[in-house]
Amino acid sequence: MDLIKRYIYAVTHKLPEKQRADIEQELHGLIEDMLEHRTGGGAVTEKEVEEVLLELGSPQEMAEKYLGQRRYLIGPKLFDLYWMVVRIVVFSIVLALGIGLIIELFLEPVQGGQFIIESIASLISAAVQGFAWVTVVFAVMEYRGVKAPDIGLGAKNEWRPSQLAPIPNPKTTIKRSEPIASIIVNLLVILWLTSSIHYFGIIYFNEDGGTVIIPFFNEAVFRAYYPLIWVTIAISILKDSIKLVAGRWTTKLAAFHLLFNLASVVIAAIIFMDPAVWNAEFLSELLASGMVSAGSEGYETASIIWNNTADNFIYIVAVIAIIDSIAVIYKLFQARK
């Protein structure tokens, strides 16, 4: 009778707890009925038990029939979305840490093999973590029965032919690579700003072979602007995600994009027009480095460039935003023709 118990356990332990006891009892009754039918009420042998269990089929199949569906960690309905997110996340992590590693090596070349091995190990572990977290989030979504339409992807209402998306006009199509690249750049910026803003600067090696950095920014002041930058980048990633899903420029999307460009110029203005974010000691540190000497032509040039950059940085940002906005508007107008 051990076999029967093992069979019932094999079926029921995969089923939801609530149904388990009931199904257990039911199966027990069924198997006993089947045995009785076979033996006509006589003694039951091991052989007959085996025959009955074979007739019932494998416990795996039986459990699936009770569940009414196959079980997935991440089912076919969510898989496409999952796969895309996994690729973006893992690729961003590897790229960000990889570039970070190269910069670090460039700055501290003396650290040697041990450092490289450790960095590669931590890179792999970070990539695995990224993969694991995305998987966990999607597995929870699968478990809770979230379907793609519930999170705004795929068709929610009844389908109507009039809703068919137009055949994509090659002029308005958004290549997948574009938003993905943008998301990656955003993630890189966040990582670098948060972890190593002090690396933004002029880097040189002093006589002792050590690395000295003359930062462009005043780190303490800059840090106060982090929340603003994070929100901006979060919105930017949201915008890229929408572009990725939509796959083509629509009027609404373009409006969102232009609005975002405007907002990011305003935010850049708030940050970079604040004289305190720039490193006030930059020129004197440059002098102290010995790269240029006071009163020399080189110093004059450097100070002109420095002062102009600090003052005009915002215009550079604005020009880039304007060019990008014009390109988007141009695409929309092309599509209207």
Partner: peptide
């Protein structure tokens, strides 16, 4: 109950596995 149903249906020419009928 399940198994009596199997027998009844069987007698009427409709065969069904108990493993299918119970779920």
């Amino acid at each position: 109950y399940g198994y009596s149903l199997v027998a009844i249906l069987e007698a009427k020419g409709i065969s069904i596995d108990p493993g299918t009928l119970y779920p």
